[in-house]
Design a protein around this nucleic acid. Structure first.
Lengths: 203, 203
DNA sequence: TGCTAAACGGAGGCATCCTCCGTATAAGAA
DNA sequence: TTCTTATACGGAGGATGCCTCCGTTTAGCA
């Protein structure tokens, strides 16, 4: 596909870019208020733009989500890279705590992330891929040092994290979710003796 | 509250009970077809009843869910009780496999179960309680035999199961979910040496 | 300055949610 | 059986949201 030649004949219009940013800001505000179910018309209203404009920039609700939370995934990647000093297991725990912290403030994030983990949508593809790569690196280090089992794929791990975080409600959700993820990591990190015969293999 | 005295002055009308059943059957059909997002009007249509009738019997979508999937929780309780022959850890694994099997067919079940786990809604209260009690019994046995950690509440465990099951999509979801839950159980069952110093405590 | 591709905006068609209230009917009394 | 009335039924209707389509506006470019 030599679509390099299919360059935009014109510079993108200034109002278009401006409106895109306005919409993103509005979406961030509305979603963090009303959750991921919030009305798209409300987003357009908040942005002071027409609903048609919103749909042209973001054809689906998902596309909007993903655009809104795109930078958040970069934060996760950056966090993962900053943890290389720690032992693999400690790094993994720290990473998950970071994730929990992000989820704590951005309500819509999970809704954006869940579908982005396996579906191939243009907006999110590379970001999701970077995130998966970051997770893979954390896992790989643990494996090489023999402290983490190898029968789990990075995207599977991410799914578990997302899934467990879904259960966030009530007062102490954060403490609970942290503890549940810690238990999961316990299972993920084979103890020296269990390494020989992983417990799950026992049926 | 002496509301025992506030007995219904009349026997409930026969058509009311009949319609309730009709609605439940229709809901079961529609939800298993169109997932938990399916239209309530479609349910009423399928039942051949007015939308108003549906809303009188089930004021919210959640109430309908819960009524539809009420008996499913009883199945889970029964399964748990049938597993007392097994070792605690094996019983827990078997129970979760049973749960996965149920989720595999009933699409709407998770949507019904998630809110039912802590909220106190009249319809589900006792069923949810029985289920929690069943989980508690499984955990307790493991603790008494010293093979399961004690820093997790039964409802917390159920939440993890539900959360991990949320990630069911794509081809091999069932295999993945099973493996993820197995890893979680690995973490839940302290190995003999780890029992002295649970790994999570290491921070 | 004028041309034109690109973007805007919102009306409108459709679906769903949920409420409200006039009508119908089953349960119990006479 | 007949009458009374509490109870349930049904669906119209107002509100809202989704998404599309197209006439109007405007920014880039020559």
């Amino acid at each position: 596909m030599s679509d390099d030649t299919a360059k935009p004949r014109r510079k993108p219009r200034a109002d278009s870019l401006r409106n895109r940013e306005t919409l993103l800001a509005a979406a961030r505000e509305v979603f963090s208020e009303g959750g991921p179910e919030a009305s798209l018309e409300a987003v357009a209203r908040t942005a002071g733009l027409g609903i048609g404009t919103l749909y042209r920039h973001f054809p689906t609700r998902e596309a909007l989500f993903q655009a809104v939370y795109l930078r958040e995934t970069d934060q996760m990647v950056a966090l993962a890279e900053s943890l290389t000093e720690l032992e693999p297991e400690a790094a993994l725990r720290a990473w998950m705590r970071g994730f929990i912290g992000m989820v704590a403030t951005k309500k819509g994030m999970l809704a954006a992330l869940a579908p982005a983990l396996d579906k191939d949508c243009p907006t999110f593809a590379e970001a999701a891929d970077r995130m998966r790569a970051a997770a893979a690196r954390l896992l790989e280090r643990g494996r090489q040092e023999g402290v983490m089992r190898d029968d789990i794929a990075p995207e599977e791990m991410m799914r578990v994290v997302v899934g467990i975080c879904y259960t966030r409600d009530g007062e102490g959700w954060r403490e609970t979710v942290t503890r549940m993820l810690d238990i999961f990591i316990d299972g993920l990190c084979c103890t020296p003796d269990a390494a020989a015969a992983p417990r799950a293999a026992r049926r």
